[in-house]
Computed example of a mutant assay.
Amino acid sequence: MDFIKTDLRTTTTDNKGNIYFGAEKGFCGVFKMGVILGSGDPHSRRIPTDEKGLQDIKLRLGNTLSDCLSGLSGIGSILSAVNPDLMSAGDLDKIGSVIKNLALLGTEAQGYIEDVETDLLSRASNKGANHG
């Protein structure tokens, strides 16, 4: 599957609501699909678009961002303890790839958190305008 069709309109969807998964994003595409599919109701399999559902997704994204930062910190700790003479160019290439993917994943999670916050603020503003 190259895309998932949604009702959402965010910076990550096209004008029809499609979310595309590009091969250049490493495991970010897998993460994106996991967040979307993992947030579905276990019985109806519908993706939440209400405030509670968005808050749940925001919490998951925050946890993912924290995990990415912890992973980067862990890699830094390991690298500071290793003898560089014992590492090959291949080892460094693999470590660099993991660092790159964790950084991309964290950046993408932060972007989604900002999208969800914008959506929640917009809903709150609209709700206040409708009741005011």
Score class of each variant (00 low, 15 high):
G34C: 14
L69K: 07
L65P: 02
I78G: 01
K94Y: 14
V98C: 08
N83C: 06
L86N: 10
A109K: 01
G53K: 13
I75Y: 06
R45W: 14
T118E: 14
G71I: 03
F21Q: 00
T12M: 14
K127H: 11
G53N: 09
R9E: 08
E51V: 00
G71S: 08
F31A: 05
G62E: 04
I78S: 02
L79Y: 01
D50T: 08
F31H: 06
S77W: 07
N126M: 12
D85I: 03
H131K: 10
L61R: 05
F21H: 01
L37R: 08
T64V: 15
Q55P: 07
E51Y: 11
K58I: 07
R46P: 02
Y20A: 00
T107D: 11
Q110I: 00
G90N: 01
P84V: 00
H131Y: 15
L59D: 00
L65H: 07
R46V: 09
I113G: 09
R45D: 15
S88C: 02
V98G: 10
S97M: 10
R45P: 13
M1H: 09
D41C: 09
G34K: 14
G53D: 03
N83R: 07
F27M: 02
A103D: 03
L8W: 14
M87H: 14
L72E: 05
L37W: 04
L120Y: 03
L59W: 03
D50G: 11
L65V: 06
L120I: 00
L54P: 13
A81D: 15
K16D: 13
K25N: 14
L79W: 02
Y20I: 00
S66Y: 02
D2L: 01
G132W: 07
L121C: 11
I4D: 13
L69I: 05
L102A: 02
I78D: 04
A124E: 10
Y112D: 09
R46S: 07
T12H: 11
T6R: 06
H43I: 12
G96F: 10
N126G: 13
N63Q: 02
T12D: 13
A129N: 12
S88L: 02
L59A: 05
D2M: 01
E51K: 15
E51W: 08
G38C: 03
D41W: 15
G38N: 04
V98M: 14
K16C: 07
G90A: 03
H131W: 14
G96N: 15
D115G: 06
G128K: 03
D119H: 07
I4A: 04
L102R: 04
G26R: 10
L86T: 13
D93L: 01
